[in-house]
Design a protein around this nucleic acid. Sequence first.
DNA 1: GCAAAAGTGTTCCATGTACACCCATGT
DNA 2: ACATGGGTGTACATGGAACACTTTTGC
Lengths: 286, 286
Amino acid sequence: MSYPPFAVTVDIALFTIEDDIFKILLIERGGDPYCGDLALPGGFVLPDEDLDAAAARELEEETGLADDAWHLEQLAAYGDPARDPRMRTVTVAFWAITASLPRPRGGSDAAAAYLVPVDRIEGDHLRLAFDHDRIVEDAVDRIRSRLETTTIAAQFCPPAFTVAELRKVYETIWNTPLDPGNFQRFVRDSGAFTPVSSFKPIVHARATPHARVLEPAVALLGPSEGATDDTEAGSSADSAPSLDRLASGEKTVKRSRRGRPASRWMVREGRPGMLAKPLRRKTDDS
Amino acid sequence: MSYPPFAVTVDIALFTIEDDIFKILLIERGGDPYCGDLALPGGFVLPDEDLDAAAARELEEETGLADDAWHLEQLAAYGDPARDPRMRTVTVAFWAITASLPRPRGGSDAAAAYLVPVDRIEGDHLRLAFDHDRIVEDAVDRIRSRLETTTIAAQFCPPAFTVAELRKVYETIWNTPLDPGNFQRFVRDSGAFTPVSSFKPIVHARATPHARVLEPAVALLGPSEGATDDTEAGSSADSAPSLDRLASGEKTVKRSRRGRPASRWMVREGRPGMLAKPLRRKTDDS
DNA sequence: GCAAAAGTGTTCCATGTACACCCATGT
DNA sequence: ACATGGGTGTACATGGAACACTTTTGC
């Protein structure tokens, strides 16, 4: 049986928040078409590979992150016959989010990689290679609406996070201030999050340095039902930001916080899931 | 440059409502793999064709409907390496809805076509060819949620419809009763619909002989093809009784309906669009 | 007249919003 | 001590759910 042959690729729009700015990972093309332009990381799907697997592989190749450090979902397929001058190509676009990136490094066909603020593309209409402008636009829309109905926002945070950190994620991505009090109730009552209260050690991938692997979660917490808590709050101020600092590539996180020490939360049952009731944003900025 | 060659296909999940039952168009496979099984209509994407164009072409080939009689949107891409035993295939799935189907006819590689109730697949777990079970499941989910935020439900109705007809669409697809009074307000106040009140003629295919060119839309409502329940009344709003008489001068459709005559509505600005405020369903039946 | 369906009015209650206020801590 | 941000209480507005009620037609 004969059929028209296609090249099938995956492209990944990987988002993160750095310095309270919503950013996307882009690579500078070194190859033939659109050489020097910015583009989404991606590549061909291998003959024996599922689409999700291909996207995960490209993501790992491009960032070096462990595969539990991100959240990855399919966006859509794009197949304009003129989208790639070299050949007939259909790309399956994915969007992904992660708490932090080690340091963008160039992949196989990429000259360099950058974390670009999303509003540089939205607002300034920065042109990207191929039809990647449209893909990014669609991906941003998708993420903004997914924040309403799922807990993926927590994926922008370290495994244990404070209510304020999570709120800041929503505010950054939606570009809307949220009432701290009401958001507090949302985290407490939605059922999607649990306070980090147990003693079991959390083994997260980013806890790289040797001495910290077995660090119990209690070092990260606020008040537990256990005996001593306030003394560990000081330990919290010591260890938790060190993780941040490690992960964000020695970018010094502002350590000037005052006020009551925040208790930390995490997503129920590990991975992000659906919210029973959506968290609505009022202004829908297009 | 060499790359792994793929076959790229489109598959369309076309939904309609017949006899107040939510149904999907399926074909019985005549070809090689899964011969005799039910499958989604679809086919190869041509070398110079965009994905949407391929889906629209297949839809037209399969149903014979005009391209303004349906609503078509991309669902997702499916590319499991084992999904087609013949070759490495990626399919881009679409979902579509239409008010009514002429009479399912077999396409090129189809032995026959049927309108199958959706709950035959959801409830009875009717097995389909390839991974089409999953595609249908995803498509049904997508449509159910799209009803909340868009006006696509009107696409299941003739161009001009009564509030009760539209409500019945929601009730059928969501499988949930809705309060007639509240739904009335939704149609009136949402801003997404306008009453068919003006005199402007809608140029329609069935505007047959000369003298009837200026017939208002109210008299041209869709022919109900042998459905047991009719509700296709030539009756107009109370604003235009004379037109009603004009329309009923022609041998009109049978009407067993009782009660107050319903005024008719249509989607604002022609095609389906977004709702300013979503219409929420309470029970989310999975 | 009676039944059935369109369409309106109105009450009740859940939920979101705004904001005051207390609490705990770092400087 | 006091400024700062976490966290709680609460009053008010909004909007949907439920349902009574009127209107208009077919039988």
